[in-house]
Amino acid sequence: MTLPDTTYQLDDAVWTRVLTQEMASQLQGQSLVFLAGDTAGQTQQIPLLVTAFEAQSRAAPGMAAYRLNFQGPTAPVLPSQTYRARHAEWGDFAIMVSATGADAQGVYYEAQFSHAL
């Protein structure tokens, strides 16, 4: 797979890609690179380590619901929003993350997913 130039912009191609529950369940211990714009309009690459995957048992019939937890560096802190996230083999996905806490080891984030099967 040829990945597009490193840009943080979200486009139609990235919005249509689904990080399936099966894919997400394989990510624990791997990093995704979240692409964010800085004040000069340049792309920053922030690696977030997947620390946990949890399938939601109360998903509606025909739906998948799951959560990923991440740990990132202490700076920069990503504001809650949707980012272009890049997996080295699977390419880019649009993932909305929210910070859930921080300590001396880093900042912790969560992403919730829900989609039709």
Rank of each mutant, 00 (worst) to 15 (best):
F53A: 08
D92K: 07
D11N: 11
A85C: 10
A116D: 06
S80H: 14
A52F: 10
T39A: 09
V18F: 15
L49K: 15
Q112E: 04
G37R: 15
Y108I: 02
T20C: 06
A64C: 03
Q112M: 05
R17I: 09
L27C: 14
P73D: 02
G37I: 13
Q44M: 11
T43M: 01
D38P: 02
F53S: 06
L117H: 08
E54C: 00
L35N: 03
Q21H: 09
V50K: 08
M96R: 13
G72M: 00
E54S: 14
E54T: 14
I46Y: 06
S114V: 08
T100L: 01
Q30F: 12
Q56I: 10
T2R: 09
D5E: 11
Q30R: 13
P79A: 12
E54H: 05
A85S: 11
E89S: 13
A55I: 09
Y8F: 14
V77Y: 08
Q56S: 10
Q56D: 07
N69I: 03
R67T: 14
R67I: 02
E110I: 07
Q44P: 01
D5H: 07
M63N: 03
T39E: 08
P61Y: 09
Q81L: 03
A116V: 11
V77F: 07
L3G: 04
F34N: 05
F113S: 02
S114P: 00
D103Y: 12
S80Q: 14
W15G: 02
A88D: 08
A116M: 08
V18W: 11
T6K: 12
S25V: 15
E110K: 10
E22Q: 09
A40W: 13
S57C: 01
Y8L: 04
Q81S: 07
E54L: 02
M63V: 09
V107Y: 00
V107Q: 00
P4G: 06
R58A: 06
V77D: 04
T7N: 09
F70S: 00
G91T: 08
E89G: 03
D5C: 02
A104C: 01
D12K: 15
D12V: 15
Q44L: 12
L78W: 13
L68C: 00
Y83Q: 05
A102H: 09
Q28N: 10
L27V: 12
L10P: 01
D12P: 01
W90K: 14
S114G: 01
T7R: 12
L10D: 01
V33P: 00
F70T: 01
A85V: 08
A36P: 00
P61D: 03
Y8N: 05
Y83A: 03
F34M: 12
T100I: 07
L48F: 05
T7Y: 07
I46N: 03
S31I: 05
V97F: 04
Y83S: 03
A60K: 13
A85Y: 10
G101Q: 09
A59H: 06
M96Q: 15
G91F: 10
Q42F: 05
A59R: 06
L10V: 15
Y66K: 00
G72K: 04
P76A: 07
V18K: 12
